[in-house]
Design a protein around this nucleic acid. Sequence first.
DNA 1: ACTGACCCTATACA
DNA 2: ATGTATAGGGTCA
Length: 376
Amino acid sequence: MSLQWRKIYITRTELSLANVLQAGQAFRWILDENSGEYLTTMKIVNNPDYSIVLLRQTNDEFIECSTYDKKCDLNDLVCHFKLYFRSEVKVETMHANDWLPRDPKFKGIETQGIRILGQEPWETLVSFICSTNNNISRITKMCHALCTNYGKKIGTFNSTDFYSFPSSNEIMLNATEADLRDLGFGYRAKYIIETAQKLVKNKKENNTLSDTDFLNMISESNDYNELREHLMSYSGIGPKVADCICLMGMRKDHVVPVDVHVERIAHRDYKIKASNKDIVQLRELYKPLPITRKKVNFQLDFIRTSLNEKWGPFAGWAQGILFFREVGGTAGANTEGKIKKRKNENSNTTDEDIKQEQSSDISNSKRSRIKSEQLN
DNA sequence: ACTGACCCTATACA
DNA sequence: ATGTATAGGGTCA
């Protein structure tokens, strides 16, 4: 099948596909190492089903997008990716005119084509529930496991099957905690089931059918503190995961998710430390927000508010760049997951091999679980 | 406020 | 070559 490719003009300095698609923001892009193309499934506007979409970057001036879905309009596809990559935000301009004047430490820092994605909120939410105590490789496997087990099959290309990301209804109807544990989700199995159930309930009460619509509605009708309060009402979502969802799944560009690495940067490079007075102030601010009060770590929250004030309306993007600089190279270093490797094995890999790999994955995780149960 | 448990896996190290 | 320890983008009780 010959593909029609469409160009989107954005320089490699503004967007590096490798650094943005494979460094811990998105977990469902598959790199075909033979062609250098990135593939996944996405919901494209004006099209009822998920489409298989492709991206490639063979040039410093533009990227190209395409799709295997004949029903998917190419103009819609270009629009979709401009929104997904937030092409209206100019990182280099932001660096020079906003971050550098606010923070001299940005002098000489390369932005390395890092951008913050505007992803679909439900997929982002579930992905980041999976991210706790975890590495990119396993998060990626878990996201794919959700799709292959509970999503709809969209098509097969290069002997790889493509599935949609399952809705909260699909997860609630077809998955149990035990199922997800067998698939290797560990303690996150419970969080995902409970969160899917809660979202189904919330959608029903608001007469909304789509996860995307419901979460966008919540995102648009609340200020940041209340939005975070809502997100933290779901099982498995604490302050850090909530902030990742806000930033990468809800376009809240000012939000700075504080994990151990950002904490280290804040202490080492900015000497940020909350005084008792700072903590009293935050506690006062969160008086009307019971879940936030319960879940938040005030020392970390002070780092979040400090960096937000320092870096301004696009503080989340500034964080993204410093984060990648700190760990970007190593965070994905051990990410040679089965899915990526499989793509490299040419066409002598059959569906049967893939099934065997998957089932051996499952039995491995089962074995470890049984082993740890025996130890208890 | 502080601490430990929590699933699993890749890697380092003995 | 096999076994053990540890950390990996936190949350919950």
